[in-house]
């Protein structure tokens, strides 16, 4: 049985059908790259998986548990719990500008473990939890190379550093599957490398990831599987060798040709 199973996802905004039946599966520890021209529905797909959009039809099954079924009704609370299986790193970082780097990473875990806690915590317990969360945050920030920026504010960082904070912030919630929506598209070319390097390092820790990207070289070398999306459907799916080396669909061929032109 597949680790993640996405089944028949449909999504329309008003009259426009953006996703027209998306099916795919993933294994644990797999890295999936999603490529495709802009407007093909990549962002919408990630947003559906993170419950920022509600699909009109389809199911999402993780590890045998049905997380979402378009026929079901879910309360705010259920959605909140379900979406914690996924993490999302945005194209535009969306860090909280008023907090330091460290605080950005600690805030959500604290709110979940302390403020949303079922049982009443004593002051000592709260202090203990805070300490653990902060210790964990420091480790994660060290792993993305930001130990010397803990007390800086996002506005004092470069785009690449900000995106690495955003990755650390997502990791702190321990998502089962981490999604990236064009994590380097808002960056100057000389800064994309440091972010891609962090993502590559996550791959070595066997983290399951879905990465929407325009970096074809990166998709080819870092992904285990590649999806090429066009007009709201999966036009091509396979290993990087298959999709890049031997594409079956006309659309894939012409998309790949165009993206090669853009590079040279």
């Amino acid at each position: 049985m597949a680790f993640l199973e996405v089944n028949g996802i449909f999504k329309r905004f008003g009259k426009t059908e953006v996703l027209k039946g998306i099916d795919f599966t993933m294994d644990k520890g797999e890295v999936l790259a999603i490529i495709g021209s802009s407007g093909s529905g990549k962002t919408t797909l990630l947003r559906c998986m993170n419950f920022l959009e509600t699909p009109d039809a389809g199911r999402i099954v993780l590890n045998g548990e049905e997380l979402f079924n378009a026929d079901g009704k879910y309360s705010d609370r259920e959605i909140r719990e379900k979406r914690l299986h996924f993490g999302l790193v945005f194209q535009s970082f969306n860090l909280f500008p008023q907090y330091t780097v460290l605080r950005n990473v600690c805030l959500a875990p604290e709110l979940m473990k302390i403020n949303q806690s079922e049982k009443k915590l004593s002051r000592a317990e709260k202090t203990q939890i805070r300490k653990e969360i902060e210790e964990n945050a420091r480790q994660i920030l060290a792993s993305v190379g930001l130990s010397d920026k803990l007390m800086n504010y996002p506005c004092e960082l470069s785009g690449g550093q900000q995106q690495r904070v955003a990755i650390a912030r997502a990791l702190a919630m321990e998502p089962v599957i981490l999604c990236f929506d064009e994590p380097t598209s808002a960056l100057d070319p000389e800064l994309t490398g440091e972010v891609l390097k962090v993502i590559r390092e996550l791959k070595t820790t066997d983290r399951t990831m879905i990465i929407v990207t325009h970096e074809m070289g990166f998709a080819r070398s870092a992904a285990d599987k590649v999806i090429f999306m066009a007009d709201g459907i999966i036009e091509e799916y396979g290993t990087p060798e298959e999709v890049f080396g031997n594409p079956k669909s006309e659309k894939t061929v012409s998309f790949l040709e165009k993206s090669l032109e853009n590079i040279t």
Binding site: D76, R80, R83, A108, L111, N115, M173
Partner: peptide, 20 residues
């Protein structure tokens, strides 16, 4: 994006309003 960042991090609506 500020609301959405809070949402995907599992915050409640009121936490997003008051903390973010």
């Amino acid at each position: 994006g500020q609301y959405e960042a809070g949402q995907v991090l599992g915050m409640t609506k009121s936490q997003i309003f008051f903390k973010v």
